[in-house]
């Protein structure tokens, strides 16, 4: 595992997200912003975990206690953009890779043959399969954005940190004569981070000390989901509530919390 963990440390830029659970109200704006930005078709049936296409989902967490000790929280979960992506290693057609500066795990839709190995491999259930062709009601297809191609039935998809925004930010940096690998913090923000009304989602380069995420991801309150698996997600969470950390690593009741 240690060798595997070294694989992607050569990236100079590691785009990452820090989600402050203590600030997340669970309003759903991030999910809807993601849907509209990335051409996820509106569903006419309520969310179905196995059928509804979603790149970002909000889980409601509870501490399992009763009375005054009862507590709840919301946890938005995008693709973790793992440093050691288990999905990429199982893809038989190289449709998903982690080979671009920035460390975003790609998903190349035209290459995907829909075998769903990646879905089985992803411990975060961050990937979804298109069981149906996407349908927008009459005239509503006018809201399709030019940013992401529309994926047909039979293709797996996932969050890519709004990669088109990364491309745009790089182009703008080049046009200004700046180094596209040293983007300013706000030059590149995914739709969810931009939409979040409490600023619970902070986005930036985890390797750049000038970016907020650099400090936040190193906070003593920062943690990642299922850290014990060694996937090293580039998505961090922050909470001062201990029980959330415990839930995040899926520890059993009798287990002591890590760290």
């Amino acid at each position: 595992m240690s060798e595997l963990m070294q694989i992607h440390e050569h990236f100079k830029v590691r785009w990452g997200m820090v989600i402050d659970i203590d600030k997340c109200t669970g309003c759903g704006a991030c999910v809807m912003a993601c849907n509209t930005e990335n051409n996820i078709a509106p569903s006419t049936d309520r969310f179905n975990r196995l059928r509804t296409v979603h790149w970002l989902i909000i889980y409601k967490l509870t501490n399992g206690k009763t009375g005054k000790e009862y507590d709840e929280a919301y946890l938005p979960r995008p693709c973790m953009q793992c440093e050691n992506p288990l999905c990429a290693s199982v893809c038989p057609v190289v449709a998903t890779t982690k080979d671009e500066e920035g460390g975003i795990v790609s998903q190349i839709y035209p290459r995907c043959i829909g075998c769903r190995y990646c879905m089985a491999a992803c411990p975060y259930h961050a990937r979804v399969f298109n069981w149906y062709d996407p349908v927008w009601p009459k005239d509503m297809e006018k809201i399709i954005t030019p940013f992401t191609s529309v994926r047909p039935r039979g293709v797996v998809e996932k969050c890519n940190f709004c990669h088109h925004r990364f491309q745009k930010a790089k182009e703008e940096a080049r046009a200004k004569g700046q180094n596209p690998l040293e983007l300013e913090e706000d030059a590149y923000q995914p739709a969810c981070a931009e939409a979040c009304p409490t600023g619970a989602i902070t986005f930036g380069n985890l390797n750049n000390p000038k970016h907020k995420v650099y400090k936040l991801s190193r906070s003593k309150y920062a943690f990642r989901l299922l850290e014990k698996l060694g996937t090293n997600p580039q998505v961090y969470y922050i909470s001062k509530r201990e029980w959330i950390k415990k839930v995040a690593d899926n520890y059993l009741e009798h287990q002591n919390q890590k760290g």
Binding site: P110, R111, E141, T145, S149, V150, R151, P152, G154
Partner: peptide, 17 residues
């Protein structure tokens, strides 16, 4: 690769503007 690409290229899949 071609089969993968062309089997996704149907007229009823909306195109981006």
């Amino acid at each position: 690769d071609d089969i993968s690409i062309w089997s996704q290229n149907w007229s009823w899949i909306p195109r981006v503007p």
